[in-house]
Structures are given as C-alpha cells and as structure tokens.
Design a protein around this nucleic acid. Structure first.
Lengths: 213, 213
DNA sequence: ATTGTGACCATATTACAAAATGGTCACTCG
DNA sequence: CGAGTGACCATTTTGTAATATGGTCACAAT
C-alpha cells in the first residue's frame, strides 16, 4: 500500500457525516497521511489522536476540526485501501479479453489483493476487517463498486452470448457476491485464508458454470 | 437442542485422543449431560471443571479419568450438536423427491438449523463457532459428513440426468461447500446472519444453475 | 485392579486503582 | 472571523496483586 496516492482519494470524498470543516485542506491531507503511517505501523488501537496531532505539529483538538472522530479517520484510510483494490480490479478488467476471462480476473484480483493486504499490511487489514464488520460506509461502498463492476461484465458476457440470459441480472450478480463473500469480505476472508486459492478458484469455476448459456 | 439423545451419541464416539478411560461408562454420560446443561446455561468460559464435578457429585480429578481436557468435553457436546443437524439433514433428504429438491433441502436445512441454534442456544452456538475456528475434529467431521451427503445427492442427480456430468464430482462438491461456507460454517455464519435467507437462497439458486446439464 | 480424591503447580482470570484516551468547548491570538 | 489550543470530562485502557482454574499425581479406600 502506497500512501502517496491516498491523499488524492481523500479530497474526492463526498462530504460525509464523518467529515468536518473545509473538504479540501492541506491539513486534512496531512492528517490522513500521518494516520496512514501510524495505523499501518502501530495499529488502530495503539495510535492515539494525540499522536497524529503531534506528528503534524498541531494539538489534538485541531484534528477534530476536520474529522468527527478517530473512526472517521480510519474510515478514510480504509476507503482509500479499498479504492486502490477497486482500481486494480478495473485495470484487470481492461487487460482481459473475453467476458469469461474478465469475470475470473475480477474475482481473482479482488481475492488476491485482499490476501496480499492481509499479509503485508496486517494492521491496515484489521481496520478493513473491522470496517466490514461494523458496516462502515467505506466497506459498503466497496461492495457496491464490486457489484457494479461485476454487473457490467455480466451484461457484456450476455451480449456476447457467453453467459445465460434467463436469470435476472440482479439475482445473478448478488448470487455471485454472496457465494464469494467468504473470500471477498475481509472479515470473513480472515478465517478462510487457508483455502485460498484452491477454494476460491473452485467457487469461481462454479460461478462460471452457473453462467453457462 | 435436546440433551437426552446427546448421551447416546457420545457413547458411539470412536476412541478419540480426547477421550480417556472406558469408552462407555455411566459416569462419562453424566459428565456430558451436566456439561450440556452448564455450557448451555452459563457458557463455556463461566463453567469450571469443578462445577461439572460438583454437579455429578465427584471431585474434579475424577473428570480427567474420562476426558483429556475441558475442551474435549466441549468437543463432545459440539459433536452431538452437529450430529443432530446432520440427522435433520438426512431426514430432509428422505422427504424430498427429486435430486434438485434434495440438494436444495440439504443446504437450506443446514443453514436454518445453524441459525436456529444461534438464536435459541447462543452459548452452545459459540462453542460450535469456536470449534470451527480451531478446526476441532467435531467440526471437521461435520463438514465431511455434509460433503458426503452432498456427494450422494449429486451422484443421484447425475444419474437421473438432472445435473451436468462433465465436472469432476469432487470439484462439484467442494465448489458447493466453498460457495456456501459463509452460511455453513458457524464461525462465518455469525457475520452473515443478516443475509439469511435471502443471500443463502441466492447462492443455492446459483449452485443449482451451475448443475444444469 | 478399580474407583476416587486432596494437595499441588503453572497459567489464566478477576478486581480495582491509576493512568491514558476520545472528544468537547470556551477561549486566545493574529 | 478563522486558525489553533489548554483545560476539562466521561469512558477506556493499563498495570498489577490477589484469586481462581485447568490439569497432574501420588496415594487412599474398597
């Protein structure tokens, strides 16, 4: 996870209930930047708001001019993490040729990216998992974006005659999401790491069979 | 969960590493019976081995003539819980007519039974979830039994011409297990209760589509 | 030999006071 | 008026000493 591009994501957020003060502001970016480093290194719990304030040379109270809560900061971090995964998935879609291949890539990329995050930035993964468990807007948005991407691919596949057309689109997509949930949702993936990629590939294969015309 | 039939299950266990002394013994049954009540009422952690000993009128040390550990007792309870679910599933298979129906019933019954256990015997559910997380033999056995039942149904469906025959049987079955895992494994189901039965039914429908000849 | 136990140990759990933390607000400074 | 903060409060978290628990074993009773 590179923290450079994180800031760019932040400033694009629609004003959330978790956000305060001016939407784009150098200080806001600094906060997120510092939080990214601290959360990643010491974890969410061991990082205090005062730490973050100190890191950017202001007092704790000033942080609260920009964020409603400590969790709101984590949510911003989390969203940027998940957005970065979405970015990867989009580029994977771009590279694949057939809809079948695209679908496979979407799911494989989502899973492998999450697993990667787990292993090489465990502390941030924990935040993502927590976010998923508490249904933060960040993880809800992630699932929606994923659904949306899947939807596009399925439509494309149907038009190309590669996928069956009887099942309602929504049902197809949400079926795919549900069947993959134990590999897609950070909170569940945690308990499933042992079965990646064998298990996840089997589910992907099953999904593709279910899409056969 | 009825604790009466639990004892019968216990005495049928193959001598496990978690079991000590005579395999069938009135005392062993009493221990399991008392443990069932205590664990269900107070939970695993709040029940001490001394409590169980006291409940049947013996000293703590005597318990360890029959079980290797406190966890071994929980495992026995857990296994009987899960066995009871397997029983329900088997009877559901008996009632359904077509393989398609049987498959649907197997999965629906497994899910609904777990959800029921969660809601009306939460403390025992927690033990099952823990068992799943720690890969106790009890929950491993449950998954294997479930796989085996699924396998039979799939074979039957293939012979009846209702299911496709190209995919290797093992892959079909393990694909089904993996895709349903977030609804089948107690540990994961916990975080998925909100999407039952909508989500689980969608996965089941997807699985059936994947089996179409 | 079988049934059963008290005493014992290392580890885990509890209880609770002290310290730290998330969060707010009146206030200062320029 | 906007940028920025110290002091403050309620709630958590932490440190730690006392207690309880899981588990063993030598031994007693029948």
């Amino acid at each position: 996870m590179r923290w450079g591009k994180l800031v760019a994501v932040m400033t694009n957020l629609s004003p959330d209930s978790s956000q305060r003060g001016p939407a784009e502001h150098a200080i806001r970016e600094q906060i997120v930047l510092a939080a990214g480093e601290h959360f990643s290194r010491y974890g969410y719990d061991k990082t205090t708001v005062s730490d973050l304030a100190g890191a950017i040379g202001f007092s704790k109270a000033y942080i609260y001019k920009f964020f409603n809560s400590k969790q709101a900061i984590a949510e911003a971090i989390c969203m940027s993490c998940l957005d970065s995964i979405i970015g990867d998935i989009e580029s994977a879609i771009g590279q694949a040729k057939t809809p079948t291949d695209k679908l496979r890539k979407v799911l494989e990329t989502a899973v492998s990216n999450s697993v990667l995050l787990f292993f090489n930035d465990r502390k941030l993964y924990d935040i993502a998992a927590h976010s998923c468990g508490e249904q933060w807007s960040s993880s809800v948005a992630y699932m929606e974006q994923l659904s949306s991407l899947l939807s596009q691919v399925v439509i494309e596949g149907r038009q190309a005659g590669e996928f069956e057309r009887k099942t309602p689109l929504d049902e197809t997509v949400s079926g795919i999401m549900s069947s993959m949930s134990s590999y897609l949702r950070p909170l569940l993936l945690q308990h499933n790491l042992g079965s990646v990629p064998e298990g996840s590939n089997k589910v992907i294969a099953l999904i593709l069979r279910s899409l056969a015309p």
